[in-house]
Simulated assay, not measured.
Amino acid sequence: MTEIASPFISQPRILVLGVMTGKPGAPPFRIVEIDGEVVCQARAITDVLEVAASHGIKVHDLDDPAVVCWVGGDKFTWRPRPSRR
């Protein structure tokens, strides 16, 4: 049996960044990257699924870190966190 010194760590194809606020009055959004390229501003989880499908990615489990990396919150985080003073 042959083993390598370090295990293979895969990069997820989909990266969803933290919640951002845009122009005043506009709803908050999260930037979505696929394969390292910015592809959209998602305002809901359905936007992430739609853009993944448009790039030929089938997402069966949004909690699988090998498929989607959620930065600054999970799949249910779509509002900015309140600021602490």
Rank of each mutant, 00 (worst) to 15 (best):
D35F: 04
V67P: 03
M1V: 10
D74S: 14
P28R: 03
G36D: 02
V32G: 07
L49T: 04
D47R: 07
P65R: 08
S54R: 13
P80H: 10
T2M: 06
G22R: 04
F29Q: 04
R43C: 05
E37P: 00
P7C: 02
G73T: 01
M1P: 05
R43G: 10
E33F: 11
A5Q: 09
T21I: 03
A5L: 11
R79V: 10
D74Y: 03
C40W: 01
I31E: 09
L17G: 05
E50Q: 11
C69Q: 15
A52T: 02
G72K: 02
F29Y: 15
E37V: 15
D35Q: 08
G22N: 02
V32S: 05
P7M: 04
G73A: 07
D63I: 00
Q11V: 06
V39H: 02
K75A: 15
D35E: 13
A42R: 08
D64K: 07
H60Q: 13
T46D: 15
P28E: 03
G22L: 05
G36S: 06
L49V: 01
I9M: 08
V51Y: 02
G73N: 06
Q11K: 13
A52K: 02
L15C: 07
G18I: 01
G73Y: 03
I34D: 04
L62F: 10
G72R: 05
W78S: 03
T46F: 03
R43K: 14
A52N: 00
I31P: 01
L62R: 12
D61H: 04
E50M: 08
I9Q: 14
G22T: 04
R84S: 11
L15Q: 08
A52W: 05
V68I: 15
L17P: 00
H60L: 14
T46L: 11
P82L: 11
F29I: 02
A26W: 10
G56R: 04
G72W: 03
P65W: 05
R30I: 09
R81Q: 09
V16D: 05
R85I: 08
A44C: 15
G73K: 04
D47T: 02
F8L: 14
Q11S: 10
